[in-house]
Write a protein that binds this DNA or RNA. Structure first.
Lengths: 358, 358
DNA sequence: AGGCGCAATGCAAGCGCTTTCATTCCAAGT
DNA sequence: ACTTGGAATGAAAGCGCTTGCATTGCGCCT
């Protein structure tokens, strides 16, 4: 059983020292062409690949960065990561992915794990985490960038978008369609600054018109279609039901559409629905879901860029704000005239078959 | 600037040798409780974390496994990976993810990269790859398991399902609804044994009834909604159009539904459509997409189990076949009586508004 | 001709950890 | 009391690589 070839084996065969082989691998320009070629032949012949541990130990770099995302089962993260990974790969950097399942403690643990794995940098989703975690990162001098979030006065490098502004914009559009009884199905806001900002954005827009956004017109639901559906049905069951439901993300939006239909309401004639993210299903729904388009791929690429910049020198980087865009589709229509604008009562008349689709 | 604490620092503070500290970390049972506690306190106090490179170098293990998937932007892979990752994490193993973008050469490169990163094992999607790659894996003595595929006589450990049988089952169901003019929109079969097996399964079922599956009733489309839509429109544009379209996956199925509608056909009255995978969108479509449910999470968990078993001793493992299930939903209906059963001509009468949805 | 500087290469010291082997200590057996 | 075996621990040899410094060889300047 022949040994896995080592630098020394290559050196022996090429008739040079290990130092030279190492240089051929890491700084080819510093080696005379003939020597270099001899070494390369030896590498080829032995099928030599550097030993990762040895390299990491000696150079204290791993050319690896880590990302901690809530879950891969969410198209938006998947897409962003994909782009991130591609760009990192182009720079010879490998991506290590860990998931937190939307749990703060688990995220902290994963960050530790990744740092223990020797990652050269980290990509973290959102801004909401304990100071202790940030202190830990600082203590280890670990470069990181936050994604999916952006604030003008964020203390750390981030590349993302202004969730508050985008959500506010959504609400303003909805208001523009004449809606006044507006409800929101938000994502879980605990430990999630994105979900929280979206709620605040919507609330701010409504407040500008003197409208409030509070329970029971504000429901939180976790990231599942069924949760969105249940929430919508709850909202629509009441007399004094909303004429529009703003959802914190597209999955909840899709769920809301399913729920509205199940409750016998038509979209958008009886109730308008909006989402956030613009994932594939938004276009597939019938009517298609009005939503906020977020260029996830671009965000991933920018994150890669920042991270690579952050990695080498002590060069600082500036945060990047990605532009989002409201996409108006069929699920958003004018407020039904029959709906009361401010009163409490509602005749509850439904314009469609209560045993409609689904 | 204090140094990152090393084993030696811990040893000094605890008043023991580095060997003992190492043992506390790796085989706590082998050190006396009092000593152990002293060491643990020192570890705590210094905030010591083992250096990954050092450990990898000395022990030649990394507690890391790699997965190479076509793309993260595909819900099925994401879901399987998520489960895989969770179970590996429970065993203290980290997952390294790389993507091949459905490209054979890129996959080979990623495998090399991951092995160079010192992964202890690999998860690979499907079975179709060059012998050279398998030889390389064998040469490096790298344990691996194949996922998303299963054959009784597969030469390597795999955990997946029988794509051929499942696809054949789909076709039989479709035949059971009286369809005889059946077309298929397949995924790209090049370098993709899953897509290929699905085509063959459908073909086999049709052959049993004396029917063929060939161009122009067999179209390949890449993994995008638009591609499925375009393919469906092409299929339906012809006179002698199919009454049922079997799609190689749900994304193509969703695309086909969009395309059929755009061409003015109703599903399932004018044309039935089936998918494969049972991702979220299948249920959201209207009518919902009939498809094959694949328990991706279970598959991910089994893959984790095999991989962990494969990792330590030379213990061999046996492949696992996961059961799939056909889910009948609204998109599959009886063959329209107006459609000719075997002839070439077709009056092309459409029963719906040619300017229908989309 | 002698000296200088630079480019190319080699030497060898670690990087932080694991692990074999040797040592020490103690309790139990004779 | 003396041996013996086992448990706990330490000493030290690497694991494969990078890199600072030393060495060599060469062309060129004075």
């Amino acid at each position: 059983m022949p040994h896995r070839p080592s630098l020394e084996d290559v050196a022996r065969i090429a008739g040079v020292s290990t130092a030279t082989v190492s240089r051929v691998l890491n700084a080819p320009a510093r080696v005379r062409p003939e020597t270099r070629e001899r070494v390369e032949r030896a590498v080829e012949r032995l099928g030599y690949t550097p030993h990762f541990g040895g390299r990491a130990l000696a150079s204290n770099r791993t050319d690896t960065v880590g990302a901690v995302i809530p879950t891969m089962e969410n198209a938006i993260f998947a897409r962003g990561l994909q782009a991130l990974q591609e760009d990192l790969a182009d720079a010879g950097v490998t991506l290590l992915v860990a998931t937190s399942n939307y749990d703060k403690a688990q995220e902290a643990r994963q960050i530790q794990t990744l740092l223990a794995r020797g990652v050269d940098g980290l990509v973290l989703v959102g801004e909401a985490r304990d100071d202790a975690v940030y202190a830990y990162l600082a203590g280890r001098a670990a470069p990181f960038v936050l994604v999916w979030t952006w604030r003008a006065d964020c203390s750390w490098p981030c590349v993302g978008f202004d969730n508050f502004a985008a959500a506010r914009d959504v609400a303003e559009r909805v208001l523009g369609f004449g809606h006044r009884r507006i409800a929101m199905i938000a994502g879980v806001t605990r430990d999630n600054d994105r979900a929280r900002s979206r709620v605040q954005g919507v609330r701010a827009a409504l407040a500008d018109r003197g409208l409030a956004l509070e329970a029971p017109f504000l429901i939180e639901a976790d990231y599942r279609i069924e949760a969105g559906s249940a929430a919508a049905q709850r909202l629509l069951a009441d007399t004094g039901r909303p004429t529009a439901i703003i959802c914190g993300n597209d999955v909840l939006g899709a769920g809301a559409m399913v729920g509205a239909r199940a409750a016998g309401y038509r979209v958008p004639q009886d109730v308008s629905i909006t989402g956030f993210d613009d994932i594939d299903i938004a276009q597939l729904l019938d009517p298609a879901l009005s939503t906020v388009h977020v260029p996830h791929r671009r965000m991933g690429r920018m994150a890669a860029k920042l991270l690579l910049a952050l990695r080498d020198p002590q060069g600082t980087v500036t945060s990047v704000c990605i532009e989002t865009e409201f996409i108006e589709r069929g699920s958003l229509g004018v407020s039904p005239p029959s709906a009361p604008e401010g009163g409490l009562g509602d005749d509850g008349s439904r314009q469609s078959d209560p045993h409609g689709p689904l």
